[in-house]
Design a binder for these strands. Sequence first.
DNA 1: GTCTTGCTTTGATTCAGATCAACTCCAAAG
DNA 2: CTTTGGAGTTGATCTGAATCAAAGCAAGAC
Lengths: 247, 247
Amino acid sequence: MLHQKLSTHISCGDCAIRHRAVCARCDADELAQLEAVKFYRSYPAGAPVVWSGEQMDFVASVVTGIAALTQTMEDGRRQMVGLLLPSDFVGRPGRSHAAYDVTATTDLVMCCFRKKPFEALIEKTPHLAHRLLEMTLDELDAAREWMLLLGRKTAREKIASFLCILARREAALHMKSVGQAITIELPLTREELADYLGLTLETVSRQISALRREGVLDLVGKRGISVPDFDALQDIAGDDGDGDMLS
Amino acid sequence: MLHQKLSTHISCGDCAIRHRAVCARCDADELAQLEAVKFYRSYPAGAPVVWSGEQMDFVASVVTGIAALTQTMEDGRRQMVGLLLPSDFVGRPGRSHAAYDVTATTDLVMCCFRKKPFEALIEKTPHLAHRLLEMTLDELDAAREWMLLLGRKTAREKIASFLCILARREAALHMKSVGQAITIELPLTREELADYLGLTLETVSRQISALRREGVLDLVGKRGISVPDFDALQDIAGDDGDGDMLS
DNA sequence: GTCTTGCTTTGATTCAGATCAACTCCAAAG
DNA sequence: CTTTGGAGTTGATCTGAATCAAAGCAAGAC
């Protein structure tokens, strides 16, 4: 809690994630109730949000920045089990202690709700409960897709799969037409990427270098990556290629 | 749908999974509404329930037996992403097509609900929606625990972890005191186990043999496994050992 | 300016698990 | 009984990724 800062209060109506977060389906009245129990917190890149096992008296939505959920074994082996982007939900209603380490991987702003009143709201407002169910089901699907990646894909396929996801997201955001080069900024260090993909940082670095050598990628500085041919990357990823966006 | 058979109708009040399934919190009235749209299906061991991508006009609870969720890549690599035990829920409200292959790994009986009316019920009955949310959150936690296993554990640890889960379940069911030998029946073939753990069937076989040679396990026939010292197994699994059962 | 320091790349070597290939076991079918 | 076929075990070999070890590089500290 050392580096935590309190931000100014933003009205829900003006919030950038208003239509995608857990509050997406709430009407004006429900929003007002949420607003009454909400507060903002921000964390600088690298700061811990909570440690696994620690008491957690709030749930939250990511407003800006990226947070990572990681599990750690006693001997230090780490596996990232989720990457939280703006509008994603953190915490579990009905549980008092955090199940994972949550860390800010970039500067992070979260919209937090005091847990007790939030749980009460869930009981009363179906809109909130339904949206949370929907988001949880989406996360479950994502987790299961990741299980395929972790259990069965090669290092090369893992890297390509991750870049595909980022590139697809980038393309969707900027409405780029398919076919032209997409440039993405990696939000993770090589080590974090390794923790996400179930690899070592050396293997991550080598595979990225290999893809660059083959012309599948261009590196722009350390963190920037340009993808000249998205389809080629997708082929390497070994996915079905249906790339279906969830409705 | 070739091997599917229709079972006789059971009253929800007499159902073995009544207090743990998605209907757990429903009152008599809500149960009656569910009963109106429910029907049973049974599948023999090995039979497919649905294929990924196929239309799925029902959701269901596993009543007896075990079903597996698997994802398959074009070249045939397979990863099991979930093992469904009695009371577990299959299918996703708000989605018309199956996201995974669902297969009966043992003889299986499912309590199915027609999807449209079930979705309508979710909207109307918070009890149902809340229980489903709770179950989905539990599955998400399980999926994330499995991500750690798939991404970071050794073959030996993977086997031990799986056996620990089975043994813990068995002990809980039979109220065995800690300390005495637990005997479990593997519900999966070596190949299915490999698909679940992200290994090959040969590695599964070798690791089980190794644990037997070391005295950590005793084999009883092909599928039976006796664990004389649960703590030893848990040590090998590399878990935190807190083994907390979710409330 | 040059010294840290954190991140990244690259090289050499090792090793866990995959792959390829027999072979055993057992139960069901003829 | 024999045959057949699915499940499991075991052995020999190969290989992709981990591990161990050095450097390279850029940005901020001094």
